[in-house]
Amino acid sequence: MGRPRPLVEPAPLPEYTGAATRENFLTALLDRCAHRKGRTSGPVARRARRPGSLDEVWASLPFPLAAALTEHVEGVLPLVGTIAGRSPLLRAGRAGEALIVSGLFTPNSSLSPRVASFRGHVEGSEVVMSGAVSFAALTADAALSAVSLEGRSHVFLLPLADREAGIGRAERIELRLPPDHLSAPLSWGPGGLAASAFEAHARAFAPGACAAALRALGCLRRALTARNSASGVLSTSQLLAHEVTRTEITAGLAALAADTPTDPVAALAACTGVLDSVALLAQEFVGAGMVDESSLRTDPDWDPSWTTPSVRVHFGGRRMVEGELAHRMGLLPATG
């Protein structure tokens, strides 16, 4: 048997296997995230009601957790369905009992998720692989990663059970898997399953992420105003006021593009640019003491994640998204 099956790309398994509704599925994922020794930073939810849709996820949960759930539902599940194996981890991911993040956006010199971060070859009855993976999550049970085998790309699940919480990059991973733990070959061409899952993930991520960025900017503006009561920061420093306003305008335009995307990857590129700008602004304002931190802490819309790298690394970061957009526009050589 030795070689992965030269299959035609199959249809994914039905979403949410083992969960009757999307609300039940999201609740199962949230419970799993909370169970992992409570390793999320801050409360799991900022509001009392459990979210039953991805819109509610983005409105009620901290950015990293909302992004991880969106990634699992829209970016991971369609591709997990192409793996024929029946491992416990695979079943748990399909049922919402394990959180699976995407390692498909591990940065590379081609600036494209089409380039697999693992290389593999068949050795006896196993596929031997080596490579690296990076992912953006507070905590996860597994990462969906890609391996190049005989010139074709396959996905597989890389267990992360022993990793501590936090954004991770693991280098020089070596592992052996049976062929049925790999998917059928996946296509990044137009209409291919990998490209379709990427676009669906982008469509689901960008509106919520842009809305979260606008909320963060509102918090920063209010905190500047609070500091103004003592020192006049917002009124006397027109530079700070201009920077917040300029970023709000850019974020608003990106949010509009994300809500009605004609090209989800272009909308995602605008969104990740906004995430970069808002995160850097938050880090600068908070780090330099330009805002009243006590006002931020008491603001119900403030998410401390904006002062960390966690909001800037999704989809491999802004450069990876811009690179993939350039590939699609024919500005960079085709890969994958």
Rank of each mutant, 00 (worst) to 15 (best):
A200Y: 00
S60K: 03
P179E: 10
S134C: 11
L13Y: 07
E74K: 12
V147Q: 04
V244L: 11
G289R: 07
I167E: 14
L240G: 01
L89C: 05
R86I: 00
S109D: 13
N24Y: 06
A143I: 02
A254I: 03
L69T: 01
G124A: 09
A92M: 07
R46L: 12
L104H: 02
D141Y: 00
M290S: 13
S112N: 09
P178C: 05
E174H: 15
L104D: 04
Q283C: 12
L240W: 11
W306I: 01
A92E: 10
L149W: 00
L240N: 08
I100P: 01
A136Y: 00
P207W: 05
F105C: 12
G85F: 07
H181K: 09
L280F: 13
L26V: 01
T27Y: 05
S310N: 05
A67K: 02
P10F: 06
A267F: 04
L144V: 05
G42N: 06
A255H: 08
L99K: 00
R246D: 15
E71V: 09
Q283S: 14
A11F: 12
S125G: 14
D299A: 12
P78N: 02
R22I: 09
L77D: 03
T236I: 09
H154L: 10
G131P: 00
P51R: 02
T236F: 15
